[in-house]
Structures are given as C-alpha cells and as structure tokens.
C-alpha cells in the first residue's frame, strides 16, 4: 500500500456490535457502530463504511487498517489482525496514559487487563466460557423484566436493597430471577443484585492479575451506570470516565496500532 494520507482505521467486530474508528493526524476523526450480523466480513465493512461516510472518505484514503475482535480473522479489508486485549490496552492508554487497569465487558466475554505506561499488556485474565458476567447475560435479564437494555443500570441504581443472586449461570440465573419475582422481591432490588453478582465475578478475575490505579471500564457494558457503580464497590476503586463511547475503545486501540504499524513499516512518517 502506498502513502496516501494520514488516515488510520481500526475495526472491531464483536459478537453483538461492530465498531470502527478513523484517526487523522493522531486525533479521532470519525467513528462507526452497527449491530453485528452472522457475516462478520459484512459487519466489519458496514462499521467501517459508516465511519468513512461520516468523514467523507473512501477506503482507498486509509493508509492502514487493523482488524480486531472475534471477526478479525475474517477481515480481508484489514492490513493486520491484532487481538482485542492488546487493542483495548492501546485504546485506554491513548485516552488516559495514567490508566494501568482495564475492565472490558463485551457481548460474550469479560476481561481483566493490566497495562504499563506505554499501553502494553502486562497480564490479563478472561472468563473462559460461561455467558454469565457478559453483555449477553444482561440482555437476557432485560428480557426477563421486559425493560430496555439501556435502562437496566438506572433501574438497578434506584434500588433500596440488594437481593443476593447465588447463581453464576445465565440459564439458572434466569429461573432464579423468576422465582425471586414470584416471591415478591422488587425488580429494582433483584436487578441491583444481578449487577453486584456480575461485579463479584469480575472481581474474581482481578484476584489473578491484580489492580492498580487508574482503572478504566471499556466495552458495551461500560455504558451501564449500574454496572459501573457495582464494579466500583466490588473492586473498591473509582473508574475513570471515558470521553468517548466506551464501546469504541477496542476499535480506537486498533486504529492507534494501525498508526504504529504504518510508521514501523515505513508507510507513513510523522
């Protein structure tokens, strides 16, 4: 690819959403976010095209593209593929160089990531296979209470009590929730319990990798104010507030890495 401008893109195709970020001269220039479909190539391209359209650019204008997320292996439009763990680290470091710990909660997994001052990963842990503690889990719970996913956190924050949830399995938690409702527990208190239950699972991941301030929360679930509050209580930390949609951090990191790769490969000189 020849030098044709200072535009770098990151595309993060996750299980629930595909995201893109375009950097121009080191600054966020455009973003795109679309729901993921079954075709991950198409999902990634849709997200990228959305950002390109809003920026008034064409794909040929991009110097370098990095793909990340589970769709990164099917990203023919990308010059390189990097795991989302590395990308979230770079994205958080780009926004806040003082961040040393990242909680990333996406659609199908959650990650505890420790990074250094350069945004390089020092250690990480992930939930291995259970959907409990992920965005999908919260989706199921929103369905049980027939409320919008985006309202879940605010409802939990309005609770007057916390109903403990013993279950860590999405399917079992759903049936436990139904029985709690039948028992007369208030929905907001149950939802508060669910958020704390998830936060405790995440705390378990940090027992493996440790915590160091500042702490950053990325991924789609980071938009949930109830979850942010529950995690702050479980980990006894204050979470740094992101300036952009936290769901875009992986794509942002990928764009930062695209810029670095491009420089390393001599395609672009700052």
């Amino acid at each position: 690819m020849s030098i044709n401008g200072n535009y770098f893109a990151g595309v993060d195709v996750g299980s629930l959403a595909a995201k893109s970020v375009i950097l121009k001269d080191g600054e966020i220039f455009a973003t795109g976010l679309v729901p993921s479909g079954v075709n991950s190539v198409e999902s990634g391209l849709n997200a990228l095209n959305l950002a390109l359209e809003s920026a008034g650019l064409k794909q040929e204008d991009l110097t370098y593209i990095v793909g990340t997320g589970y769709g990164r292996v099917s990203a023919p439009y990308a010059n390189k593929a990097v795991t989302e763990i590395t990308c979230h680290a770079k994205g958080a470091n780009y926004l806040h160089p003082t961040v040393r710990t990242i909680i990333d909660m996406g659609g199908q997994d959650c990650k505890a990531i420790r990074i250094d001052q350069d945004g390089a990963v020092v250690d990480f842990a992930m939930n291995d296979k259970c959907a409990a503690g992920t965005g999908r889990f919260l989706e199921v719970m929103a369905g049980v209470f027939k409320v919008e996913l985006k309202d879940l956190g605010a409802i939990a924050l309005s609770a007057t009590d916390t109903v403990p949830m013993s279950s860590t399995c999405t399917v079992f938690a759903e049936s436990e929730t139904i029985s709690l409702v039948a028992r007369g527990e208030k929905p907001e208190n149950i939802l508060n319990g669910i958020h704390h239950s998830i936060a405790n699972r995440i705390a378990g991941l940090f027992s493996r990798v440790g915590i160091e301030s500042d702490v950053f929360f990325s991924g789609g679930v980071a938009k949930n104010s109830g979850m942010k509050s529950a995690i702050e209580q479980a980990l006894k930390v204050t979470i740094v507030k992101p300036e952009i949609d936290p769901q875009l951090i992986g794509a942002l990191g990928a764009a930062v890495i695209a810029r670095n790769f491009s420089k390393k490969e001599g395609l672009w000189a700052a």
């Binding site: 589970y70 292996v73 990097v82 795991t83 763990i85 590395t86 296979k129």
Partner: peptide, 20 residues
C-alpha cells in the same frame, strides 16, 4: 472448551499472550 468455539476462543487468548 470441549469442541464448539474451542479453536477461535483459545487462539484469541494464545495470540493475546504472545502479543503481551
């Protein structure tokens, strides 16, 4: 994991470790 998503989920973690 026992088959299913094993290949991709596992490789994702291995690759992240290598990148680290």
């Amino acid at each position: 994991d026992l088959h299913g998503l094993r290949d991709e989920q596992e490789q994702n973690r291995v690759n992240a470790f290598v990148e680290m």
